[in-house]
Design a protein around this nucleic acid. Sequence first.
DNA 1: ACTTTATTTAGGAAAATCACTAATTAGATA
DNA 2: TATCTAATTAGTGATTTTCCTAAATAAAGT
Lengths: 91, 91
Amino acid sequence: MLNNKAFKALAHPVRRDILRRLRGGQLSAGEIADAYDISKPSMSIHFKVLKEARLIQAERKGNHIYYRLNVTVGDEVLSGIMDIFGIEKEK
Amino acid sequence: MLNNKAFKALAHPVRRDILRRLRGGQLSAGEIADAYDISKPSMSIHFKVLKEARLIQAERKGNHIYYRLNVTVGDEVLSGIMDIFGIEKEK
DNA sequence: ACTTTATTTAGGAAAATCACTAATTAGATA
DNA sequence: TATCTAATTAGTGATTTTCCTAAATAAAGT
């Protein structure tokens, strides 16, 4: 399946929340992780899952790694859902 | 999370395919199951997951159980995805 | 009542997911 | 080089998922 990884990534509430948090622009791994009561290593795994699904993109700036949303894949998921349910895009 | 179950249900490629198959109208458990190289009991579990996520609805007719799509929940998922990525509904 | 057909439930094994702590890597700075 | 900060990787354990076969249930036909 083409974007099975994206659907799998979206199956976890924390990962969906991370994405929502990135709507406003890029944030560092630490900034995101601080918002959750989950260890940094565990958060890092969530970032990895999102990255491998191409739902987020990473950029290193000195000491920090900044993550930002990849809305393109968001659109793909949206199209996927619409296809699944036979929902037409209202123009 | 409200519809975490729906997102979890959508994480499996076979379950997404089952839903797609139901776009054209209702089908019996057996009709759906026959299309996959997976045992009936395992398929039954997939139906259960989809049912508990309210993505499908079941109706017994004599010997058969017919499943049909619940597009309402499809719409909810769609809205959820749009919210996550900050995608605006184009009117 | 017995049998057949359709489907689910029970029980169990393998694999994946998700969390943790400890250790490592990468870059900046003294 | 040594040290500090930021983030990841390694290793481990608990839980969940996903599949199987065998058994049970439900409705219909004989």
